[in-house]
Design a protein around this nucleic acid. Structure first.
Length: 409
DNA sequence: TCTGGGGTCCTAGGACCC
DNA sequence: TCTGGGGTCCTAGGACCC
């Protein structure tokens, strides 16, 4: 039996907690991070005070405003939260060489083989040793950074993750070896990572409501519902999930190995009001093109695939993509974007709610050739200015027109 | 005025190759 | 004029996570 040595460390209401550090008067008050109550958008994070009124993250701000009209509504400040998250990682990762960043407010730690390093005479057993160390980590994050966090400890990532959710707020929950199945069995299937609203609906439709029932289901039953995930999901439901941490998410990875497939770079924008004029949409696309290309150059990658996303006012969504030769130059990407927009925008009278651009099929493509490229000198000059003053320091006239006066950034 | 934004991964059909 | 079978790449859509 594998001992419980995998830790999921999760910051409690992270964005709210950071806002309270910056403005202590928010302490104890109902706080919603995500935007103004009337605006389009969703709740990104909310304090326990508003959760009591039924507000949940992911909920539209309109509905949140109905449930909690008197709450304090704040815009999200991702860069600020990132700075605090980095400090949390620094503390946590100093306890074990094996750690993985899962998201801005969540990380996994692997303490396998660390028991002796941390053992103290007072510890009842090795489990107690690890639990004590984990409590020390959350206590330090609280003491040194002022941030509350919770942790789950189990023999697999899945168990650790679920345990951390049940430990909130500001708790530590250990599921000892051999207790996994009993711990998981009574929980609703939705608790299992990977089971979202759709899979939940189908499982419940098949009479499977608890993780225990999921663990006992046949693969023949699960295959049509979970597809390729059937086996691994059932294994996780019975407490036999993987303990391997895997790699950091690309956005948090410090270095990419040569030839690595390293995910995608995307930006999208939901308009404050639906847009009818295609030229106005194109202005936004120009801005997004500059942004994703700049991010690609900053990461030292080129993309082979460019994908445009278009969402109409009725929420119908379409994507069009094109794969070409590797590029990170807006001068090369822009004509393709226009081509994709023309292909996607087949309802000329419909109003557009959102446009997005994604670069994928990324790779480090032969940087030696870069010097000979036509646009290289221009990009280098632009990027040097931006490195000092930020992305918005330099914009093309078209990309700038559209964002001016919106008060963002 | 329900439904953000940045990601990962899977499915399924068609093109194309051997 | 009766059509297989494996493999890879591309495209569009969608589920899921935080």
């Amino acid at each position: 039996m594998r001992p419980a040595r995998i830790v999921c460390l999760d910051l409690d209401t992270f964005f709210v907690s950071v806002e309270r550090l910056i403005d202590p008067s928010l302490e104890g008050k109902p706080v919603i991070v995500g935007g103004a109550p009337g605006s389009r958008g969703v709740v990104t994070a909310c304090s326990y005070e508003v959760r009591a009124h039924g507000v949940r993250s992911g909920m539209s701000l309109t509905e949140a405003a109905r449930l909690a009209p008197d709450a304090i509504y704040l815009p999200t400040r991702h860069d600020t939260y990132g700075d605090y998250a980095a400090k949390v990682r620094e503390i946590a990762s100093s306890y074990t060489p094996e750690s993985r960043v899962a998201s801005i407010d969540e990380m996994y730690l692997d303490f396998r083989g660390c028991e002796r390093v941390y053992a103290r005479p007072g510890d009842a057993d090795a489990d107690a040793t690890i639990e004590r160390v984990v409590r020390e980590i959350t206590a330090r994050i609280r003491a040194e950074l002022g941030l509350p966090s919770s942790a789950g400890i189990g023999s697999s990532r899945s168990v650790a993750k679920i345990a951390s959710g049940l430990a909130k707020p500001a708790g530590v929950r250990m599921v000892r070896a051999g207790e996994e199945a009993a711990f998981l069995a009574p929980l609703p299937v939705r608790r299992l990572p990977g089971i979202g609203p759709v899979a939940e609906g189908r499982l419940v439709g098949a009479g499977i409501t608890t993780i225990g029932a999921l663990a006992g289901a046949t693969i023949a039953t699960l295959r049509p519902i979970l597809g390729a995930w059937a086996e691994s999901t059932r294994a996780r439901a019975s407490g036999e999930g993987s303990a391997e941490l895997g790699r950091d998410r690309p956005a948090f990875r410090e270095h990419d190995e040569e030839g690595d497939a390293i995910g995608s770079i995307s930006n999208e924008r939901t308009f404050d009001a639906d847009v009818g004029d295609p030229r106005a949409v194109e202005d936004w696309l120009a801005s997004l093109t500059e942004r994703v290309c700049w991010r690609a150059r900053r990461r030292g990658v080129r993309a082979r695939t460019i994908t445009l996303k278009l969402r109409y006012a009725d929420f119908s969504t379409r994507t069009r993509s094109k794969t070409t030769s590797p590029t990170h130059s807006e001068l090369e990407v822009w004509p393709i974007v226009l081509e994709l927009f023309a292909a996607a925008h087949t309802r000329p009278r419909a109003r557009v709610r959102l446009v997005g651009l994604a670069l994928s099929n990324l790779g480090h493509f032969d940087d030696q050739l870069e010097l000979f490229e036509r646009h290289e000198r221009l990009h280098r000059a632009v990027d040097e200015v931006r490195a000092r003053f930020g992305f918005d320091a330099l914009r093309t006239a078209r990309g700038l027109t559209v964002e001016r006066g919106r008060g963002e950034r």
